[in-house]
Amino acid sequence: MASALRHASVERWSRGSSPLHRVDARAKLIALLVFLTAVATTSKHAPWIYAAFFVLLGSAIFLARLPVMAMLARAALVLPFSAVFAAMTWWAGDFPTAAVLVAKSFLSILAALTLAASTPWVRLLDALAFLRVPRPLLLVIQFLARYLFVVGNQVAHMRLAAQARGGIGKSSLSGFHAAAGAVGVLFARSWERADGIYKAMLARGFTGRFPAPQVAPFLARDVAFLCAAVFVTVAVRFAL
């Protein structure tokens, strides 16, 4: 059901073919870590550095041919959380810290989103494995990503079934009750589904370890991207 996969647009973007998509996931991941470190350690008294970081990220989004407005909208999901802390800080009389809090969280999430939207998540998992991220954590990420679709489809089916019988109206109390019940059923169904998946894994001889990923060669293009990204990020962080 296509409507059920609306939440999957980042995954769809990640299968693009722009120059940024073609760069090795490991190079992009390391560049992201350098960028996040630079953003996190930038002083609150240098607003132009934040502006430069936005320009840098903007060029990456442009290079990846990603939809700018949709990317900004998704990154803005983090704002309600950081805005609460920012508001409290502003209230305490420290406007620069409040502004920087919002800028840092927005830049960080936008950068992570740019990586996720320009890298198929299979490659991203391989890159995380290459950087020695603990295996249990990788498994959790792998299953989380995979079953977002399964649970998402389940939600879409349940919503349709509720709508077909006149449930889940426009934020009425009865709609809230229906939604609360649906969450319970969704949990039970996801639990059953998880049990089924585990049996299917055992049936094909699963012993608790996943096969190791195949490692693709690191090309000159990837080295060039990594050097350029790190150089520009560090230059912005220290030179401006």
């Binding site: 998540w121 998992l125 792998q142 995979r146 589904r193």
Partner: peptide, 9 residues
């Protein structure tokens, strides 16, 4: 349910 059997990326 094939959905349960297909779990790799």
């Amino acid at each position: 349910n094939s959905e349960e059997q297909l779990f790799m990326p």
